[in-house]
Structures are given as structure tokens and as C-alpha cells.
Design a protein around this nucleic acid. Sequence first.
DNA 1: TCTTCATTGCACACTGGTGTGCAGTCTAGT
DNA 2: ACTAGACTGCACACCAGTGTGCAATGAAGA
Lengths: 205, 205
Amino acid sequence: MCNNGVVPTESSRVRSMNETRDRILDVALRVLGENPDAGMGDIASAAGVVRRTVYGHFPSRLDLVLALTERAVTEMRAVLTEVNASDAEADAAWVEFIARVWPVAHRYRVLLALRRGEYGEAIHGLLGPVDELLADLVRRGQDSGVFAQHLPAGILSQVAYGAVFAIADSDLSNGTLGARAATITSLLMLGVPETRAIALVGDQP
Amino acid sequence: MCNNGVVPTESSRVRSMNETRDRILDVALRVLGENPDAGMGDIASAAGVVRRTVYGHFPSRLDLVLALTERAVTEMRAVLTEVNASDAEADAAWVEFIARVWPVAHRYRVLLALRRGEYGEAIHGLLGPVDELLADLVRRGQDSGVFAQHLPAGILSQVAYGAVFAIADSDLSNGTLGARAATITSLLMLGVPETRAIALVGDQP
DNA sequence: TCTTCATTGCACACTGGTGTGCAGTCTAGT
DNA sequence: ACTAGACTGCACACCAGTGTGCAATGAAGA
């Protein structure tokens, strides 16, 4: 009786299991954001769970971080491909990109820190495709002349992207203002004139 | 007999001791630059010395890092105050600053990484005065209208400075070219128009 | 020659994190 | 009522790094 479909819902059992799994991931993101060197114990207790349970869901610390990274890649790639497919000018697309990717990327910004040291290799590998998409956007801007060419697209995109989150970190939490200033700064270093940059972000509410 | 002065030279004994001490510091800078998580053992063997000897000169790992930091602060402050005292326009002073501080700051760039996590507090404290000087320069530029004001001087200076070394790290080692591109990029994000930025770095050989 | 002392090579204790094993408990499906 | 299994609590073993203690070595200085 009951479900003969592919997703049996197996009801409350697996659902509550997925809930704790997701909760662990959510909490891990927050805890690691505050301290990238936090241990499994810290994450577990912050998630209201015992360390042993975390190992039940993620066999090793690396698996946990990787699961986090895959989540981030999925979300960011979605936004990035969509923005990239737009026929708008590259600088406008960049503004749109920052605005839309801001919440998700800000959540996962710890991955930028985790990218150096220990798991750097693995994370870098998973984040690679996202970097590609980003570089494509910048390259498009350089080809159409709206972005400067003092740096290759691959490096320029990374540095501009990094600057955005450097500002986000140092900022005094007033998110909207910080996002605005960060976007302007990134546009400036992409070679967009100040007047144009201000006009572009002015359009965004 | 012998020296009654304050600096007795005590000749070869203390000199060779200072040599190993300096060698340890030099090597530590290089090793930590390659891997900020390197241990005392790695540093010791890279310096051609036994781990126990390192502890003879630096009672703890923190002491070593702090000695490194003090060195960096001394050298950078010298350059920065000199540039800051110049009566040149702020954007020209910035170019001069990057050019002159480049070698030393690039050597000590690992401190930027060490600034987060573990010793972050102590390093931050020692580096504080340097940050102040840097912010002063940017503020001067903002007051005289050559730098943009989309960000407060304190944050803007840090982000611009950080971008310079992000480029240096990602760059393919061709130092001169990287330094040029990095300087242009930092000028752009400070709000200097592209033509003016290129003209400024063009003056520098 | 005799002394001093930086350096060595080992030993050790301590810490903090990782990952595993296993017997118990409590709950939701049957 | 019975059972599967997610979670717990505690036990381990293991590892890597830190910092210390101490006797031995060897070279520079008296």
C-alpha cells in the first residue's frame, strides 16, 4: 500500500533526519563564518546536537565543508548563468550580479577564507566553474569596451569580487549601504568611470 | 680591559647568535609565506637548525610572529611617514607609496593572512599605526578631491591596499608588470580616472 | 688549558582536534 | 507490542603541534 512513486516521502523519519542534516549545515556555515578554525565539536553543540551525530551525517570534516561548498556552487551558478545570459551591457549585468548574488555569496563568504589552507584544493576545484562564469562576464565587458584591460579577465574578476566581500566584512553591518559602496568600488576597479558607476547603481533600489 | 662602552661587540659569540636569530626570522617569513600554518619544526629545519634552538631564541610561536611583525612595522612606517610628509598630490603620493613599499610589504604579505585567526589580535594591534598612516594619506586625497568618497578613508585604504596584494599573489610572478597593474587597479578604486592613473604610473620607471 | 655558552639530540608531558566503536534510549512506523 | 534506526553518551586510539628538561658536544674566549 501507499506510495509506489519514486519519492516515497517515507514520511517523518527521513524528513526529520534531513532537517537535522540541514540544520547542521546551516549552523556550520554560521559558526565557521565566525571562526574558520572551529572544530566539529563547536559546530555540533551550536547545532544542539552531539559531536557523534555530526559524524553520522558527515563522515569527516572535509565532507561537511564540501557539502557546504556544493550548496554554494549550486546557488551561485544559478544566478550567474541567468545574469550572464542577459543581453544587457556587461557593466549593468555586473551590477545586477552583485545585487542578486549578494545575499547568497555573503552567506557563504567563509568559503573564501577556507579556500586557503587545508581543504583549499578541494574547495577551489568545486568553485572553479563559478570563477569561469565570472571571468566570462568580465571578459565580455572588456571585449565590448566598457571594462578596462589593465588585467586579464580571470584575475580582474577575482580581485573585484574579492574587494566586494572585503568591504562587506569590514563594513559596519548596514547591509544596503555597504552593498552600494561595494558595488561602486568594484565597478571603479573594473574601469567604469565614476559618473557611470553611480548612475548604474542609482538605478537599483 | 677591553670595551668599557655600552656596545661591547662581545665579538664573534653574540654576532653568530644574532646571525642565526636573523636567519630564523628570514626563513620563517618565507616558510610562513608559503604556508601560514607551518609549525616550528618546519621553520627550524628550513633554517638548518633544530627545533629546540628556535625555542631558544623565541620562547613561543607567538613571540616569533610578533618579532616578524615588529620588523615589518618598523620598515613600513619609515616609508609611509616619508611619503606622507611629501607635498605632492595624494594620488602621486599613493603611486610613490606603492612603488617604495612594494618590496617590503610583499615580503611581509603573510602577515595579512596571519591577521585573521589565532594571533590576529596581537598582530592587528602592532599593525594599527601603519593602518593609521595609510588612512591619513587616503583622507588627504579625499579632502583635496583627487580620491572618491564613496567609502570612508579607513575602509577604502584597507581595501585598496588589500587589492594590491591580492593581485600580487594571483599574479604569475612577473613582478614589475604585476606591480604596475596592481597600482593602476588601486588608483581606479580610489576614484582616480583611468587616463590620469595610467599617466601617473607611466612616470614611474 | 679551562670555562662559557650556543647548539644539539633526545626525552617527556600536555593540549586539542579527529575519527571510531558500542551499548543505551527514545520515537515513529508496522 | 514490536522493530528499525536516529540520536546520545561515553569510551577509546591516534595524530600533530607546542613547550620544557637535560645531558652531551664543540667552538670561541679567558
